[in-house]
Design a protein around this nucleic acid. Structure first.
Lengths: 242, 242
DNA sequence: CGCTACCTTGATTTCGGTCAAGATACGTGG
DNA sequence: CCACGTATCTTGACCGAAATCAAGGTAGCG
């Protein structure tokens, strides 16, 4: 059985988009994992998958559509924590406390896989590759979160938007979708909220990038016209010190 | 064998401060884990434990002293990612890529435990409680990082410092040290860098908190005089909208 | 077709960054 | 033990990026 075939299998089995990388599991193992996964019916736009305070029982993977996670503070203000695209796993922050500390909501009609955590735990003790996979997945989320921290604490509004767009572009590319032309599944408000910027700032920067021929924006449709300059914008390069 | 005894054991075994919570492992299991841990000699102030680019082979736990993790950008600027106190584990962001993407440096003379990752992986497949513990630990780091993200994207300078101090206070308390009087192991620069603030701002806010009788600051020695007001300051509460 | 949610643009304000200058603490070697 | 040099910390004056406030414009949906 060829490697390429294996990869196809793991791509078709929805749950495995998130759980597997090529070569890491045998077919047999894939079947085992796949058997523990529930394919629930699609979640409608603005419906929640789980809410802060809910008991934790499963991890989730996006099959199609998009999810945002967020917390709500005492004043009822929403704080966007992250966006999850097809093939990505969410809900991992709930493991430690056994309760969801954030909420997850569909940004559009979204198909998700539910992965019961206790079964995943059992299975990952048996299937060594699955365990290392889970460790890598969790570690990846940590590394990504720390990247975002850096962005939030050091970068200008323009740099944040630049990074955000490149990040999305890269993630779409990973999923074999166009890295240059895509639809933003979230509202401007959510982008601003996520990046620590006011909506107005997000809007202004989008129009500026468009004026400078770096981006073509039409509502939620985005086209990256000049990837190189977008990289320059994203990578800081405010004057060196001393 | 009483629970309290168990707890003492896990506290004395350095590695287990980070790896264990009371009741989660049997004594037998604790011994197993403990056997895989290397107790290296103390790391002197400003010496690195690992550096960005180093091959990943171990996780680390602080036994005494303090560690900061950081990344260095193209311009040579340092970006502080986190501070780790006794009983806390660091290096987990390296699992996913198998290479350290951040560096770790001792803020003072620091004793650490080294936990070889491949042995930890093997052992955690055998000892179920250890596996769930690792998952929780990684998840905890994710949740903490997301908390920080929220702070960096939404909170004012004063709120950040307030939160930072309360967070340290809480972590010292966990380790049975005074939650009101402690020594900041890091320089003001590091605090500012971590919180996305200029050193000058950190300094000004420290003096302001001192003037308002909320804090007593003497160099790196800090005493929290009014915990309640510090909480108020930390918890946002800038005017409600609409 | 009209309502509501979302997006854009402009004018004004403000928090915190930058620059500048001292003050204080610290480690090292004489 | 002290003197010197360097790190770190503090304080003040000024400035600028982005927030806030305000007002229209646009689009998706029932």
């Amino acid at each position: 059985m060829s490697d390429s075939h294996k990869y196809v299998v793991s791509c078709q089995a929805c749950s495995l988009n998130a759980l597997c990388v090529p070569h890491s599991l045998t077919e047999e193992e894939i079947e085992l994992v796949d058997a523990t996964v529930k394919r629930s019916k699609p979640v409608q736009r603005n419906k929640t998958v789980f809410e802060s305070g809910d008991a934790f029982s499963s991890l989730y993977a996006v099959r199609s559509g998009a999810i945002k996670t967020y917390s709500v503070d005492e004043d009822g203000e929403e704080h966007v924590i992250g966006f999850y695209l097809p093939g990505e796993m969410f809900g991992m922050d709930a493991i430690s406390r056994n309760v969801h500390i954030s909420s997850a909501k569909a940004l559009e009609t979204t198909a998700i896989c539910e992965i019961p955590y206790n079964r995943l735990e059992e299975l990952s003790a048996k299937v060594h590759n699955l365990q290392s996979h889970m460790y890598r997945l969790l570690s990846r989320e940590i590394a990504d979160d720390q990247d975002l921290q850096l962005m939030l604490s050091k970068k200008t509004a323009e740099e944040r938007i630049g990074n955000f767009l490149l990040n999305l572009s890269h993630r779409y590319q990973m999923r074999r979708l166009s890295p240059t032309t895509f639809r933003l599944p979230m509202a401007r408000t959510d982008i601003g909220n996520y990046l620590g910027l006011a909506v107005e700032t997000v809007s202004r920067i989008f129009t500026r990038l468009q004026k400078n021929q770096i981006l073509k924006v039409d509502g939620k449709e985005v086209e990256i016209l000049d990837h190189n300059r977008l990289c320059e914008i994203a990578n800081a390069c405010h004057e060196h010190k001393h």
